[in-house]
């Protein structure tokens, strides 16, 4: 049950090779799907183009629900890429987990806190960047002492809390889903014929639920990204 992570050191940095593999796979899948779907663009959309236009509108609606489109339009592509990448990452760990020589190679990249916290930190960092860019340093700095100056420590804590909750929420949901699947498939199903029969239905149910959770988490990540962005870039509340 306990799988090692294939860690290699390179240029003084620790690389978890399974993460590297899965990040690459997830990115490649997202890219290939997006590329194939937008090869034959037409004024009258068909098939996958419809689906992608629906995603575009979906993300657009998320952004529109948090800020006006004039400032939010620039985050459209970021939101699209985030929701696609996280959704595909969440789905990757569902059908199987591949272990080779007691090392876990195939899993959801988002089932690793390092990955999710990286994405979260990137989002929060971007929100600060755009806060400074769109409102100027002074206005950006003054936001930390609004509405009351004594809230300043809380505001600082909030930034870190945002990063942590954003990353760990995604990680927790996906990791828990994978753990349970591993337990069902790797534990119960290995306990003999009865165990295997008993494991079929819960596994099916849990996989279905994990698809739901994975979609919801991708949506929530995108939504919260836009909320944090809006919090930093919008002029007043």
């Amino acid at each position: 049950m306990h799988h090692e992570a294939p860690i290699k050191e390179f240029l003084g940095l620790n690389f978890n090779l399974s993460n590297v593999l899965m990040i690459t796979v997830a990115s490649a899948i997202v890219f290939i799907i997006a590329l194939l779907s937008t090869r034959r663009l037409a004024m009258k959309p068909t098939g996958m183009q419809n689906f992608f236009e629906w995603i575009m509108d979906f993300v657009k609606n998320i952004i529109n629900s948090t800020m006006d489109w004039k400032t939010g339009g620039r985050f459209h592509i970021l939101g699209l890429t985030l929701i696609m990448y996280i959704f595909v990452s969440n789905m990757l760990g569902l059908p199987f987990a591949i272990t080779y020589d007691h090392t876990l190679w195939w899993k959801s990249p988002t089932a690793d806190p390092v990955i999710t916290l990286t994405l979260a930190a990137m989002v929060v960092g971007l929100s600060h960047y755009y806060g400074v860019k769109l409102k100027g340093v002074g206005e950006y700095g003054r936001d930390f002492i609004r509405p009351m100056p004594f809230l300043f420590p809380l505001k600082i804590i909030e930034e870190f809390a945002n990063t942590l909750t954003l990353g760990l929420r995604l990680y927790g949901n996906i990791y828990a889903g994978e753990i349970l699947l591993t337990l069902l498939v790797g534990g119960l199903a290995h306990a003999g014929v009865g165990g295997m029969l008993a494991a079929i239905i819960p596994t099916l149910v849990w996989q279905g639920f994990s698809i739901f959770v994975g979609s919801i988490q991708a949506f929530i990540f995108c939504m919260l990204t836009m909320v944090y962005m809006a919090h930093k870039v919008s002029q007043d509340h």
Partner: peptide, 9 residues
């Protein structure tokens, strides 16, 4: 895993 962070970014 600093490498992971860098790679993911």
């Amino acid at each position: 895993n600093g490498g992971d962070i860098l790679y993911q970014l």
